[in-house]
Every structure is written in C-alpha cells, then in structure tokens.
Design a protein around this nucleic acid. Structure first.
Lengths: 101, 101
DNA sequence: ATAAAAGTTTCTCTAAAGTGAAACACAAGG
DNA sequence: CCTTGTGTTTCACTTTAGAGAAACTTTTAT
C-alpha cells in the first residue's frame, strides 16, 4: 500500500511556495505570462496525481530527477518534444496542441 | 481584394513535398514520431488559413521569416513559449496544452 | 536522534534554439 | 526579358536546453 508522501502538497500550495500568494502582483504577472509557468505546475500536478516521485518520472522519461525538478520549477523550459516525452512516456497520456482557425 | 498566392499549397501537398507521399515508410515514421513534425505543419496550416506570409507572421511574433521557415519545415524545434508566441501574437489564438488525469 | 527518501541546487559539458543578415531559388506578372 | 514577392538556405553568433553527477536541504519514517 502506497502511503501518500507528505512532501506532496496541493498545486495551490506549490504555486504559493514558488510564486507567492494568489492576488499578489508578482503572482498575477506570472500567471498572465508565458506557458512555462503553467507547464511546470502542469507536470507537477500530473505527477502528484499519479503518485510518482521525480525520480520515478525521470526514469520513465529517460532523464534525471534534477532535470524534472528544474522543469517543475520553471528553471528550464522544455521543448515541445521533451514535453511530449514527459506526458507520453511519463504519464501514458497524449500531448495535444491546437490552434483554432 | 487579397488574391491568393499560388505559392500557397495545401497541407497535404506541403507534407508530400517535404516528407514524401502518404503511406510510404518514411512518411509514416515521421507521422508517428514526436510533435515537431506536426508543429511545423500546424503553423504552416494556420498561417495559410489566415492568409499570411512568413514575413507577416514573423513581424507579428517578433522574429524573422527565416526562423518561421525553419519552424515550418521542422529544421528547428520551438520551445513551448516560442510556440505560444507564434500562436498568440501571430494568430491571435490561445495555446492549449493538456494532460488528462 | 538518526537514517532514508525526496527534492533542490550547483557544476560542467554539448547540442540545439534563437537572432540577424544576406544570398539564393523560384514562380507570377508586367 | 526584368522585377517583385515569397520562401529557403547558409553563415556567424549568443543563449539556453538537455545530460549527468554530486553535494546539499528538507521531509518522512524508524
């Protein structure tokens, strides 16, 4: 039986820790900014939902836990194919990118 | 009245030109591969639908037509924020990335 | 209190994105 | 023919992703 790691906090807690409280100027500017802010939270959120550690995710994707950490904290910004690897190999899901015409 | 440039071909013509006929092994492998193959076609397709030239798109995005060409032909693979710039600044649309949980 | 597990940060290296400009190819139209 | 518009390719350069490992911090469990 997998006991839930207390390290694992909610997405809001994660964002608050890393980017400040909701409603603050700094946080709002980040939220309104480019996708990389959202991508880190997206991956973190998905990983937690799947009950995986960074190391487990890294192994599935074929990278290291340090890289996963950097992506989740938006220290590095992934390429599209890297994001796809994480989503497909890591989470067994499909990346979807769309433009409405 | 904007006359449609005869340079502008269909997406299938574009793919056939760059990646070979549908059903060939080479083309199938590309279609099954990572997103970058699709991203080039996605951007090309959206640009044509909007009736824009590479130079017009480049100006909106804040880059050069040579870069747009490379992205469309998958010579370079964009980062997520770059793709977002193209979609938002270039096409006035929103990039959506999702993972089902 | 200590050990183990999970996550972060730092370091070095290389492959590739991103930029800018210029030259080139090529079709359409005067 | 020549010119113009559009797209491609090349070159040189700077920045950053991506990798790998190691040290470090923080959290959780014993």
């Amino acid at each position: 039986m997998k006991t839930r790691n207390k390290n694992l906090i909610t997405l809001e807690e994660f964002k608050e820790k890393n980017y400040g409280k909701r409603g603050t100027k700094e946080r709002d500017e980040l939220e309104a900014g480019y996708e990389n802010f959202k991508i880190g939270a997206l991956i973190y959120n998905a990983r937690i939902e799947k009950g995986m550690t960074q190391e487990q995710l890294a192994e599935k994707v074929g990278t290291t836990k340090s890289y996963i950490s950097k992506i989740e904290n938006n220290i590095k910004e992934a390429r599209i194919s890297t994001l796809q690897k994480i989503i497909e190999l890591g989470f067994g899901d499909t990346l979807e990118v769309s433009v409405k015409l």
